[in-house]
Design a protein around this nucleic acid. Structure first.
Length: 867
RNA sequence: GCCGAGAUGGUGGAAUUGGCAGACACGCAGGUCUUAGGAGCCUGUGCCUAAUAAGCGUGCGGGUUCAAGUCCCGCUCUCGGCACCA
């Protein structure tokens, strides 16, 4: 029966171009892109559904003007996943939005004389069109644009809630200031001491009063909960741990040695090694320590020396290599009293002490700290050993270990009543002693600092606060939100915050006393916008709340967003702020989840010719150009095929061409077999389900099911889409080869029934749908399918059909491949052994030798060990 | 300096659990079809070699094992992050 079918077909696949089966990506993609925009409901998440929910999110872009290849890659990953989940019957939430406040809009306003709002909205329109052209399946009904009052009013609302809870506060502090931008910059906007927008412009430090959010309140929880984030890359968790930088230590007060009659004063130092305190031979202060200024007040020489130290520190920061500067210090001539030993030790100022860590003051223990040792050697300060190696072997005991001896595994000596204790015992005992005596206590320090959110810029969320002459700081009442950003404004780079020059904005009425008040004219850091935007997607048009907490709870569940995908460059800032915000929202009862994101994926960078794409290197590849040349499907599929998604991807146009070639093959293949009558189509589908097939047909069926398994497994597991695509390519190659056989069928048994070849195409189309959605939809239609491909069930893998009947087993002799034997897939050890030993080639190799041992791994290989 | 990731053909990469190294693709070479081919299809392609023989081969040096890209010890280099954190 099969023979009859196959022998009647004589078609030469090489002649397809003549029969007008041509893959025209532009035609297909513009056609479907238009359809998808007409029927927006296709990609809408359902508010009520019996299906399980799945929230897949990609990091929202800043609307800089145009998408770059990094975006394409990021969104291609998320889109493939979203489509796969839809086809697997999930209620998928796949939204997109715009992180649209920020400095570039203002700089563009200055250089092009275009209002930031206009510039931003135009960029959004352009990038949205690009996304639609790329065919990403977003639920645009939930689009979030952070620069619009509908959104930023909730930033203000949250700010008031933070203020109520004491989590927003105002303080004076040192901040980064870019003279060219004329604004404060976040730490992350300072690159090697320079402004990120003006790489030749050094950033100043200025003392300003600013708003801060108390992220440190959650430092401990932010750290501890990292352990629960099993779905996060280890790398990101390590980076966050380092960023938070928890450190257990002791605060110790050193009294200043002052002549009788002077007011008493003290210096508090922070140390993680209080066990070494009897070895402290000096106090070292940071040059910017407040006490240093006091000491230098009437001492011009000291003052100029300290200024020198400050300059050195600044320079080191600029160079970005603080560790490399030469240690340098100056003796203040003052003394402090070690509260443990009552010893009088000198107070120095040193350029290696940082004001912004610990207390800005340390006790210097040259014998047991590398930095202190280096410093003490240079200035000939006393080096006093107070820890000795702890060893059971007396022979190995060294009286004086090589210095500095920094191990925690030692015994205290010359340490008064604490001598003889091990370091580990001594630390808690000595901290307790300080606490009891009232001159110190055990403490925990974090490197994480409170989040400075004030920006002296126009294009951001106005901070909803008022300053009243009578009542001081007064929050704007909730019902008066939003505090609107004025539209018409003259943006210049001088004169501080642009809003301060808009009297209608600045002048307000105090809600408490009715008197006149001044509005806060700073705006919020844009990281505020991105700290909670993903909640807004769940209920994007709510006018009464940032989102309904029931709706939020549906999508976030107990563990947060099911899958978040973005660049690793956000590993710390955005993701720490988001985690902080979620914890704060949980504490105010808005959400139940303690973490915003259950699973995080960080994709690699897109590079070209071994370097990051940049205008200066001239190696930028534009998505528009790729779409025009190869089509969106090819560009997207290539971005998944060229490398595993977590690794960097080296962009090669030739590679995109190869993917386009592959898609053409798929198109032609389906094109050839799609013109079936309904009866034939039905026949085809049933043919696929039979097991009574010729060996050749069976091979196709087997390959199909193996491919379904490989693709499905990768979506569920390791996400190596490059191998998924390769597997589908293998399947197509096999179909082409089988088709050759049909066409050239010289002997009937070699043939594959055409009906089977036709049937496989349906599953093939489903398999490529997550990667090349345009082509898949076109082919789906060509196959006469009516329903949406997106809701068509993902093909089912049948292990019985995927199973190999016969396998090739490598035969090794002394570990080297010498022959291959074909055996049934379930062949016993005995069978494999017999077949291998009767293999001609193997026989000749064995002849005259002694078989020491034979290792058989059924289903894998056989190794014959000879002597 | 510390932490992390990586190093496999001419190129991107594959080998998921210690079991045929180089899947898939690019490039290259040859063939086919063709007025033509820069389209399509077929074949070949790690190195060495006349060879489908033997040998060599996963950054380097050792080791464990019947068997190592994979495990262990010691290095080198590249990329990323942090960096005088007391």
């Amino acid at each position: 029966m099969q023979e009859e079918n196959s022998t009647t077909v004589h078609r030469d696949p090489s002649r397809d171009h003549d029969t007008e089966i041509r893959y025209d990506a532009q035609r297909i993609e513009t056609k479907w892109s238009a359809r998808w925009q007409e029927d927006a409901s296709l990609y809408s998440a359902e508010p009520n559904s019996t299906k399980p929910k799945y929230y897949v999110l990609e990091m929202l872009p800043y609307p800089s003007g145009a998408l770059h290849m990094g975006h394409v890659r990021n969104y291609a990953i998320g889109d493939a996943l979203a489509r796969y989940m839809w086809m697997n019957g999930y209620n998928v939430l796949h939204p997109m939005g715009w992180d649209s406040f920020g400095l570039p809009a203002e700089n563009a306003a200055i250089s092009n004389n275009t209002p930031p709002r206009e510039w931003t909205l135009r960029n959004i329109a352009n990038m949205k069109a690009q996304m639609n052209r790329l065919g990403f399946a977003y639920d645009w009904s939930r689009e979030v644009t952070t620069c619009l009052p509908e959104y930023y009013r909730w930033n203000q609302w949250f700010f008031l809630k933070l203020y109520e809870r004491g989590l927003a506060y105002r303080k004076k502090s040192k901040v980064n200031w870019c003279p060219k931008c004329a604004t404060v910059l976040a730490n992350e906007q300072v690159v090697a001491g320079c402004c990120w927008r003006h790489e030749d412009t050094l950033v100043d430090q200025r003392e300003l009063e600013q708003w801060f959010l108390r992220t440190t309140q959650y430092a401990d929880e932010l750290l501890r909960d990292l352990d629960k984030l099993d779905g996060w890359p280890e790398k990101v968790k390590i980076m966050q741990r380092n960023w938070i930088g928890r450190s257990e230590g002791t605060l110790v007060d050193f009294k200043l040695d002052v002549p009788a009659g002077f007011p008493p004063s003290m210096i508090t130092v922070f140390t993680t090694r209080v066990d070494t305190i009897y070895g402290a031979t000096s106090i070292q202060l940071a040059p910017e320590h407040p006490m240093v200024a006091d000491f230098a007040a009437h001492n011009d020489l000291l003052r100029s020396e300290v200024e020198q130290l400050i300059a050195e520190q600044r320079k080191a920061r600029e160079v970005g290599d603080i560790g490399a500067i030469e240690k340098h210090g100056v003796n203040t001539g003052r003394f402090a009293i070690n509260p443990y030993s009552s010893e009088k030790i000198p107070i120095w100022v040193a350029n290696y002490i940082l004001m912004d860590y610990g207390t800005g003051a340390i006790m210097s223990v040259p014998a047991h700290d590398e930095r202190d040792y280096e410093f003490a050697r240079k200035y000939r300060l006393e080096i006093r050993l107070v820890i000795l190696p702890q060893t059971t072997d007396l022979e190995e005991t060294v009286a004086e270990p090589p210095l500095p001896f920094t191990t925690l595994d030692g015994l205290l000596v010359n340490s008064g009543r604490f001598s003889g204790l091990s370091c580990a015992e001594a630390i808690p005992k000595m901290s307790a002693h300080a606490e009891k005596e009232g001159f110190g206590k055990a403490t925990v320090t974090y490197r994480l600092k409170d989040w400075g959110v004030s920006r002296q810029r126009y294009w951001g969320t106005p901070i909803p606060m008022l300053y009243c002459e009578n009542d001081g700081i007064v929050p704007v009442p909730e019902k008066e939100l939003p505090v609107l950003l004025p539209d018409k404004i003259d943006i210049t780079l001088t004169g501080g915050s642009p809003l301060s020059r808009v009297p209608e904005f600045v002048n307000a009425v105090c809600p408490k006393c009715g008197g006149s008040a001044r509005r806060e004219t700073d705006t919020m850091d844009t990281f505020v916008d991105s700290s909670w935007y993903f909640y807004r997607y769940t209920d994007a048009h709510n006018d009464n709340a940032p989102f309904d907490s029931k709706i939020g709870a549906y999508w976030f569940g107990d563990r947060g967003i099911d899958q978040y995908i973005g660049g690793v460059e956000h590993a710390i800032l955005h993701l720490i702020y988001s985690r902080f915000w979620t914890k704060f929202m949980r504490d105010m009862g808005l959400v139940k989840n303690a973490e915003p994101v259950e699973r995080l994926f960080t994709q690699g960078m897109v590079i070209k010719d071994g370097a990051k794409m940049s205008k200066s290197l001239g190696n930028v590849v534009s998505p528009d150009e790729m779409i025009a040349r190869y089509g969106a499907d090819s560009a997207r599929m290539y971005s998944l095929f060229a490398a595993p998604p977590d690794r960097d991807l080296d962009w090669q146009d030739k590679g995109v061409e190869g993917v386009q070639r592959f898609l053409s093959r798929v198109y032609r293949y389906v094109g050839r077999h799609a013109q079936k009558s309904p009866v034939e189509a039905q026949l085809a589908v049933s043919a696929l389900q039979t097991e009574a097939l010729s060996p050749e047909a069976r091979q196709i069926q087997r390959k199909l099911h193996q491919t379904i398994k490989r693709v499905s497994d990768d979506f569920q597991g390791r996400w190596h889409f490059n191998t998924c695509v390769a597997a589908i390519m293998e399947l197509v190659n096999e179909l082409y080869a089988a088709e050759e056989n049909v066409a050239r069928a010289s002997s009937p048994p070699k043939a594959v029934p055409e009906t089977l070849l036709a049937a496989v195409q349906r599953d093939l189309v489903l398999l490529i749908a997550p990667f090349a959605p345009y082509l898949a939809h076109e082919l789906w239609e060509m196959l006469g399918e009516k329903g949406s491909l997106l809701r068509a069930p993902w093909p089912k893998y049948d292990p019985a059909l995927a199973k190999e009947e016969e396998i090739e087993i490598p035969v090794q002799v002394n570990g080297k491949l010498r022959s291959l034997i074909v055996v049934p897939a379930d062949a016993s050890e005995e069978t494999i052994r017999e077949r291998a030993l009767s293999d001609e080639k193997i026989k000749s190799l064995i002849a005259g030798k002694q078989i020491v041992k034979i290792i058989v791994v059924p289903g894998k290989l056989i190794n014959i060990v000879l002597r």
